[in-house]
Write a protein that binds this DNA or RNA. Structure first.
Length: 234
DNA sequence: GCGACAG
DNA sequence: ATCTTGTCGC
């Protein structure tokens, strides 16, 4: 039996939920394992930031995942891995993690180095039950994670200032669950939230550093490109 | 009941 | 996510 704050990734995968009610129960059970008391790797740290993403082939029910490791300081690609699997859950808003995580874990396991930080497509704490994809992946792996999403989901925000680096709170009622972050001047912001073992200031700082040239972080762009190629040749 | 809804 | 041509702009 798992004690509070301790989970087994293998057990969680073996006990994968079969329906939406079970999935929500899993989220409620794992939510207390999220660690929000660590500030996380400092911007400019020596290590690797890993981007993960998945692509789908609905006709074949196939999912391909990619994990791409970048040097955290130079953003150079230093390692990459892919995995292919069967879709194990439908897309349901709020339950995205159950669709993506099994194959993402396979890809992460094929990296030659342990990531120091993982950047997910989607949300962490910015989630109806405060347990989005990034938080779920963080709890299962124990790694620091952040979520960078392209859309505000159900949350509200006022547009941040026009300059690169401007932010505004992403709000669920009065609670700040993440931040809208302008990564390029005059371009729609991205939506950053904490996953696990990092604070929101650093999550935004890493995202800004990774999005030096484009709206989306290089981690996301590289993983998106790789998982599409993996799906095409699968 | 109806609409909204990360990827 | 995915389906998809041209087109405006650097």
């Amino acid at each position: 039996m798992d004690t509070p704050g301790t989970i087994s990734c293998d057990d969680e995968l073996r006990h994968w939920p079969a329906d939406e009610d079970q999935a929500r129960a899993v989220q409620d059970r794992l939510r207390p394992c999220v660690r929000l008391d660590e500030s996380g790797p400092e911007p400019g740290f020596e290590g690797t930031v890993v981007g993960v993403d998945v692509a789908y082939d609905d006709a074949r029910d196939v999912v391909a995942a990619a994990a791409v490791a970048l040097d955290a300081r130079t953003r150079a690609v230093v390692d990459e891995a892919t995995a292919v699997g069967q879709v194990s859950f439908p897309y349901v808003p709020g339950l995205l993690a159950f669709r993506e995580i099994p194959t993402v874990l396979d890809a992460l396991a094929r990296l030659t180095r342990t990531p120091d930080l993982v950047v997910c497509d989607g949300y962490g704490l910015a989630h109806p039950r405060r347990f989005g994809l990034a938080s779920h992946l963080g709890v299962l792996t124990g790694l620091p994670t952040i979520g960078v999403a392209k859309n505000p989901f159900t949350f509200r925000y006022e547009p941040p200032g026009p300059d690169r680096g401007a932010t505004s709170p992403l709000l669920d009622g009065a609670e700040e669950v993440g931040r809208a972050l302008r990564t390029q001047k005059g371009v729609k912001p991205v939506f950053v939230s904490v996953g696990h073992r990092i604070d929101l200031d650093r999550a935004c700082a890493h995202t800004l550093h990774l999005a030096a040239d484009y709206r989306l972080p290089e981690t996301t762009r590289a993983a998106d490109s790789l998982c599409r190629r993996a799906l095409a040749s699968a």
